[in-house]
Amino acid sequence: MIRTLRNPAVALGALCCTLFATGTALAQQDKGKAVYDKVCVACHSAGIAGAPRLGDAKAWAPRIKTGIDTLYGSALKGKAPAMPAKGGATDLPDADIKAAVDYMVAAAKDGGSGAAATAPAAAAPAAAAAAATKPRPAALSFNRLLKPASKRNPPPPEDGIHDPQNDGTHALQPPLQVFESLPRSNAGNRVDWVKALDNNLIAPRWDRTDPAAAPVVMDLNIVREVKGSMPDVVYPHKQHTAWLDCSNCHPQIFIPQKGANQISMAAILLGQKCGVCHGKVAFPVSECRICHSKKKNVMPVKNAQAN
């Protein structure tokens, strides 16, 4: 009786350990990345003062050869001339710093992406983990055409137009560092710039040198009726005059008179009229509802069907 009871207990215990081990390995990995992103990134992303860059296998190889304990030591106590003890974050526990070192070493071995970490404690559930992380063929990916979230707002060295060979590229600010604290939207930079400004999360100057200068915002909506089923367009002067000068639009793009301008979607898509900015710098044309925001107030014929 006791024996039969014990077996499942052992099995359960083993299962718990396995789950626990997986959990800590993952937590450890996350912790390392978090510490890196907060503290070490300041130098180890751009390679400031000769710091080996994250994911730069060549720069890390000779250091990794000196052994993980040497690296832990350098990170904890600092290394002359420019690596400060604990990267300057002396209030962090040793374990956090070690986790960051593990993360950086893993990223170096991984040759750049920093995605796969070595997960030292993952020996027991290794098989399961491997099965879970084994890359699926691209043909089976969930989204075939839509850009996955992980590919949005990449840092300059990975964005396809900046040259990663250029040292200046690595000194540029990664957009997400900023965007994470701004209200998000669905397209463009994926930042709601109108909200960011309204909520004083950003304070862009209205004058090149005078931080106190403020725009004279004009609150005048112009409704443009649209043929067909699309809701009418409400053009708001308010949001525009918060960013722009009257002369940016009048008279070059729009004659300042309601209805005096012929505007069509085709023109907008080709970069004229509203399309001078929308689809280039301001939110893009895919966001139909932001412009087409006014329900038609005359319903043509009331449908006879009982809903």
Binding site: R205, D207, L244, N248
Partner: peptide, 18 residues
């Protein structure tokens, strides 16, 4: 980079004043 500059300046500074 527009995103970086528009955090610091309104469009007007570059596109009207400058």
């Amino acid at each position: 980079p527009h995103w970086f500059h528009r955090i610091r300046f309104r469009c007007k500074v570059c596109h009207a004043d400058l």
